[in-house]
Each structure stands twice: as C-alpha cells, then as structure tokens.
C-alpha cells in the first residue's frame, strides 16, 4: 500500500515535507491504523497518536486524503492510493501527525463541561424519565477527537474566540440534561457574536464526525432556545 505522510520534526527539520512510502500489508490488516503501525515498524520515527484502535478513545484523528477521520476505523479497502496523511488542519503541529490540541480543549473547558446542580443530591439517583434521557443521545457520545472543529472554517479563523462544533455540542449536552440547572448561565455565556454565532452552518462537522453526531443540529437547538428565551 502506498502512503504519503506529512513529516515534520522541529528537532531536525527546517520545514515540513511529504514522505512517500510503500508498506507491505498482512491479510489481517483492515484499517488505516494497521498500515500506519506497519509503516512505523519500518521507520520508527513516524509519530502519531493511537490507543483504543476501535474508534472510541479519539486519539488517532488525522486528515486522510483531504478529509478528517480516525485512522483506526477507516478501512484500507475504501481508500484511494497513495493515501495522503496530514495532521488535523488549523492546529499547531508538534510533530508529524501530532497536533497541539490546547486550543481545542480550552474551548471545550470554556463551556463548563460538567453537570451543574447545586441542590443537595438525594440519597439515590436524581430521577430522569426515559424521554428526558433520550435528549442526551447523539450528544454524550462525543469522543473529543477534534475531527469536527478542525474541519470548520470558522474555527480555523477564530480558534480563540469561537467555541467550535465539539464544544458547542457539549454545551448543548448540558443544556439538554434535565438534571442541569445552569441553562440560563450557559446561554448567557454563549450569547456572543463569536462564541456561538460564528457558526454559519457550513456543516463540515456533520460530514466528518466519525461517530455520526450532528453538532450543527445541536447549535441550531441552542439558538432556538436562546430565541425563545428572548421573546
């Protein structure tokens, strides 16, 4: 299999370059990550993140033939060769396919990604109906891989001011939770020309989400609630 991999090690490279290589696969190799592991066995200096290899930890997000995705659940058979692998766009590159995700997590942290409920908890669970719980489906499954935010032009231009699709999906995850009491505070925080309203419904986020989630819809719901609150 032919790979073309973005290489940059600030320790020795003056500037980035693309490394073309031919990787011999075994019959058991199904996913792009398998091919990358083979490549690394030949050239141990290729650097990328990986962990669960089943699409649930969010480590191995990268730009694959021009589209963001997870290497571990991208099937080799479905890829056009040479497969061009680049780091996620829009974030500083630390080395090779590894990006600095500080800005991404900063935005995630900025939405207060935790349940806020200051009433004393009951002895047992806080009761929540199956219908109320249903509201969290399509939201809580986010794996924070950053495929969505780093495919969003609004996030590229304003990563310090625009929360981005991943963060906004989580903001709505807490707004939608019947147990959370901070809806007003959360809406106030997002009612800002940049934090929320930089989203122009380009929908790249929906297109790339490896978990099939829909941040654009969640953002639409936040706007809807905000509008209802205003009238």
């Amino acid at each position: 299999m032919r790979l073309s991999i973005y290489r940059y090690d600030p320790d020795k490279d003056a500037k980035p370059y693309m490394q073309d290589m031919e990787v011999a696969l075994e019959p058991t190799d199904q996913m792009l990550l398998d091919a990358l592991v083979r490549a690394k066995a030949v050239d141990d200096s290729i650097a990328f993140r990986r962990s669960c290899r089943e699409g649930v930890c969010g480590s191995d997000a990268m730009n694959i033939n021009g589209k963001n995705g997870l290497a571990c659940i991208t099937k080799i058979a479905e890829l056009k060769e040479p497969v061009v692998l680049k780091p996620l766009p829009g974030l500083p590159v630390i080395r090779d396919l590894i990006v600095d995700m500080t800005q991404f997590f900063k935005q995630y942290h900025s939405i207060k990604p935790y349940l806020i409920n200051d009433t004393p908890p009951p002895e047992g669970e806080r009761v929540q109906s199956p219908e109320e719980r249903e509201e969290l489906n399509g939201l809580y499954e986010c794996i924070l891989c950053a495929c969505c935010s780093t495919s969003c032009p609004s996030f590229w231009w304003n990563p310090d001011k625009f929360v981005g699709p991943a963060g906004l999906l989580q903001a709505y995850r807490f707004i939608a939770d019947s147990r959370d009491q901070a809806t007003n505070e959360r809406l106030d925080d997002l009612n800002d020309p940049y934090r929320l309203f930089r989203c122009h419904s380009i929908m790249n986020c929906v297109d790339v989400c490896p978990k099939g989630l829909n941040p654009t819809r969640a953002i639409g719901k936040i706007k809807e609630i905000m509008l209802k609150r205003a009238v």
């Binding site: 669970e125 806080r126 959370d180």
Partner: peptide
C-alpha cells in the same frame, strides 16, 4: 454509583426514571 449519577453520568433509565 449514585455519586457517579450525581456527577452527571448519563445512565439509561427505567420507566420510573431510575438507573
């Protein structure tokens, strides 16, 4: 487990709203 629920864990629910 109840603590975890209080932290916000999205457990599935029974018709009575329990875990």
């Amino acid at each position: 487990v109840y603590e975890l629920e209080h932290y916000g864990m999205p457990f599935d629910r029974t018709p009575e709203g329990r875990i």
